[in-house]
Simulated assay, not measured.
Amino acid sequence: MAINDWRIELVSVPVSDVDRAKAFYVDTVGFTLDHDHVVSDDLRFVQVTPQGSACSFCFGTGLTEMPPGSQKGVQMVVPSAADAHAHLRERGVECSEVDEQPWGRFVYFADPDGNTWALQELVRPS
């Protein structure tokens, strides 16, 4: 593998209730369900991917030692913070208003365990 070809493709999100997390991320937020495999009583692997993302997220049983809700500030880039805000609100997700900063527009939300997410619309200097 060439050192100039490293990619982040999977990030763990620690949750306390796998089915509740799956319902939140897939049914409520709208991520695509890629996998849901029960390997054993001690290992379940669920993978979801935001539309258009090259990076997926996983959660389940036996995947991480992080306590539920401890993943803070995962950030995704979106074309429009206003559209992302509307999408989340239409689906019943509690989220911040659009936060206008010189370097971007942001919307923040948390999953039922308290893992936090930032959605950023990039702002290019004129």
Rank of each mutant, 00 (worst) to 15 (best):
M1Q: 09
A2F: 05
I3S: 08
D5N: 15
D5F: 11
W6T: 12
W6V: 13
R7Y: 07
I8N: 08
V11M: 10
S12W: 00
P14E: 00
V15N: 01
S16N: 02
V18W: 01
V18E: 00
R20T: 10
A21P: 01
A23Y: 11
Y25M: 07
V26R: 11
D27I: 08
T28Q: 15
T28S: 12
T28N: 07
V29S: 07
F31Q: 02
L33C: 09
L33T: 07
D34T: 10
D34V: 14
D36Y: 03
D36P: 02
D36E: 08
D36L: 03
V38P: 04
V38T: 15
V38D: 13
V39H: 11
V39C: 04
S40M: 03
S40R: 04
D41C: 02
D41P: 10
L43H: 14
F45K: 03
V46M: 04
V46R: 04
Q47K: 10
V48Y: 06
V48D: 01
G52W: 12
G52K: 11
G52P: 08
C58A: 13
C58R: 10
F59G: 01
T61K: 15
G62A: 06
L63N: 03
L63E: 00
L63R: 08
T64H: 03
P67L: 04
P68M: 07
G69T: 01
G69E: 00
G69C: 04
G69Y: 02
S70T: 05
Q71D: 00
Q71F: 09
K72G: 00
G73F: 04
G73P: 01
V74E: 03
V74S: 12
V74M: 11
Q75G: 14
M76F: 15
M76Y: 15
M76K: 02
V77M: 15
V78Q: 07
V78D: 08
P79V: 07
S80N: 08
S80H: 08
A81K: 06
D83M: 08
A84Y: 08
A84V: 01
A86S: 12
E90D: 15
E90S: 15
E90R: 13
R91G: 10
E94G: 14
E94V: 15
E97Q: 14
P102D: 05
G104S: 08
F106T: 04
F106M: 07
A110T: 10
A110W: 00
D111V: 03
P112E: 07
D113A: 05
N115K: 03
N115I: 00
T116F: 10
T116E: 05
R124H: 14
S126T: 10
S126K: 12
